[in-house]
Nucleic acid binder design. Structure first.
Length: 508
DNA sequence: TTCCGACAGTGGGGTCGCAAT
DNA sequence: ATTGCGACCCCACTATCGGAA
């Protein structure tokens, strides 16, 4: 199949806003792809590469050659080139990558170029990713989408599942099993603003567990072989030897566990997320890091114990099996209750100990991997501050032509100036975006046709955020975590905005 | 007819390892 | 030695479609 076929389909998908129409376009193409190219087609049209990453980003994609008129590139050829690019390494490799990409682009039409630019840039922007592609695969292969979903849960990689469905139908999909050593799509949580809301969503008794601010880890053990995967199914086994040891210390030797790994201080309080993230990302001298920044693992779910798959069992049964297989020191604290007061005490205790919050779980739900079902609901405290808008950036994609990303500042009471604490584009409605775009030019302190439009510090905005972290980037050495807009405060003058000292006092 | 679950999109800060400067 | 880049860790929120109620 030709790349231009995919590029045309992608354009048609982007042009139709209805999901069912997108699915029709995708299914039409998938139903005529050769078996050998099925995985490539499913990958490209859902924004992935069969190679996952090939070391090419936006910087490499700048200043590429112009298009030609005739489309001739096949999927197989492009895929082979991407594999070649991925294998480049060592001095000079970046230049080779760039040369290979340039050669490819010289042979492409403008429609093919546009498609690959978005694909390699990681922003397909056709309104169809995994969720829509699952339906398209099901339609093209004439199989129920539930079968595709089930296989995807167990395999964790849609291009492989899609290719299996297209070439082998339901039978091929049913051959996917939980395989020890191969990661499963992790179950994700929804969020609720507070405990009562979480209790209400689930109803009946609820299992509450501490939410630790660390890194999600899926741990597989078969005999003396252990593998550890992140939320995005990347293998981090070499970086977490403590976790490998913990898994090997268990009596059960055929298991898959879900948990969180986190760096703990000697006094038992958790390190800030930055410390855990740096530790887990480090690949050099892990043995030394093990002493300076030890990791601890806390398991909260069991997908397989003693060789028995438990994904379809209710949470309460999985947890019973977990308790039997894992000592209490390796378990996340958990309380099952229907009582709001007990739940509140558990929550405040978790926060007092420095943790992020709690996750409320329905004892009845199976391990619904890969979907944010209502089975798990996270609850975290929310802080707010009144900050000053220092600048705004022009948006991209559906925010093209709108002033979007806000630069936020806190007041310095000594100088009267404002100290930048980060940016946010979250929480803005279309109405607010339109208002900003019309109103901000009247506040502009300079040109408005630049990427960043500087404003006079006159507008106060109420911002919600999860916490304060140390920043090497901003002048105050502080940044807000997960900042989002709640509302503008035209009633409040900037001289009454919150101060940098208030923000600093939140860094504990 | 209305409601609501699922999905895609829009990006945020921090950190690492590697290659280039 | 420092900078730029790609990748990946954490993540909130809104708009939209279309099936469920």
């Amino acid at each position: 199949m030709l790349l231009i076929d995919l590029a045309r389909t992608s354009a048609a998908v982007a042009a139709d806003s209805a999901r069912l129409a997108k699915i029709r376009h995708l299914a039409e193409l998938l139903s005529r792809v050769e078996p050998a190219e099925a995985e490539i087609a499913v990958a490209y049209l859902s924004g992935e590469l069969p190679q996952r990453q090939i070391g090419v980003g936006w910087a490499t994609l700048r200043d590429l050659p112009g298009p030609r008129q005739i489309a001739s590139a096949t999927l197989t050829e492009v895929d082979a080139l991407f594999t070649q690019i991925k294998t480049q390494t060592g001095p000079g490799s970046q230049a080779v990558r760039k040369a290979l990409i340039s050669d490819l682009f010289r042979s492409l039409t403008s429609q093919e170029q546009s498609f690959l630019l978005r694909l390699l840039g990681g922003e397909l922007r056709q309104g169809a990713l995994n969720g829509v592609m699952i339906e398209a695969v099901a339609k093209a292969a004439s199989v129920p989408s539930a079968e595709v979903r089930r296989a995807l849960t167990l395999r964790g990689w849609l291009p492989a599942v899609g290719a299996a469905a297209l070439t082998g139908g339901v039978e091929a999909l049913r051959s996917f099993h939980l395989e020890v050593g191969r990661p499963v799509a992790p179950m994700l949580a929804q969020s609720a603003p507070n405990l009562p809301a979480a209790l209400l969503k689930i109803g009946g008794p609820v299992a509450f567990e501490w939410k630790l601010d660390g890194i999600r880890v899926q741990t597989h053990r078969s005999g003396d072989r252990v593998k550890v995967f992140t939320r995005t199914l990347d293998d981090i086994t070499p970086q977490v030897p403590e976790l490998v040891d913990a898994a090997l210390s268990l009596a059960a030797d055929d298991l898959v566990l879900d948990g969180e790994v986190i760096a703990m201080r000697p006094d038992g309080r958790p390190e800030p997320f930055q410390v855990t993230a740096a530790r887990v990302a480090s690949k050099l001298d892990v043995e030394r890091l093990r002493e300076t920044t030890p990791l601890q693992v806390f398991f909260f779910d069991a997908l397989r114990v003693h060789g028995k798959d438990m994904l379809d069992l209710p949470d309460s049964e999985r947890h019973t099996a977990l308790e039997q297989a894992v000592p209490a020191t390796l378990l996340i604290p958990r309380l099952v209750t229907a009582d709001a007061e007990e739940a509140t005490a558990f929550y405040t205790d978790a926060l007092r100990r420095g943790h992020e919050g709690v996750v409320a779980k329905s004892p009845a739900t199976p391990y619904a991997a890969g979907r944010r079902g209502a089975g798990w609901i996270k609850v975290k405290p929310r802080h707010t501050l009144d900050l000053v808008v220092l600048a705004a950036e022009w948006g991209h994609g559906r925010r093209q032509g709108k002033l979007s990303n806000l630069h936020l500042g806190a007041r310095d009471p000594h100088t009267g100036d404002f100290v930048m604490l980060g940016k946010t584009f979250k929480g803005l409605t279309d109405e607010l975006l339109t208002w900003q775009t019309e109103h901000f030019p009247t506040l502009a302190d300079g040109p408005t046709d630049t990427a960043v439009v500087t404003l006079r510090p006159e507008l106060v905005v109420e911002i919600a955020f999860d916490g304060v972290q140390r920043s090497p980037r901003y002048p105050g050495g502080l940044a807000l975590r997960f900042a989002r807009v709640l509302r503008y405060r035209p009633d409040k003058p900037p001289t009454e905005a919150d101060t940098i000292e208030t923000v600093r006092s939140l860094l504990l």
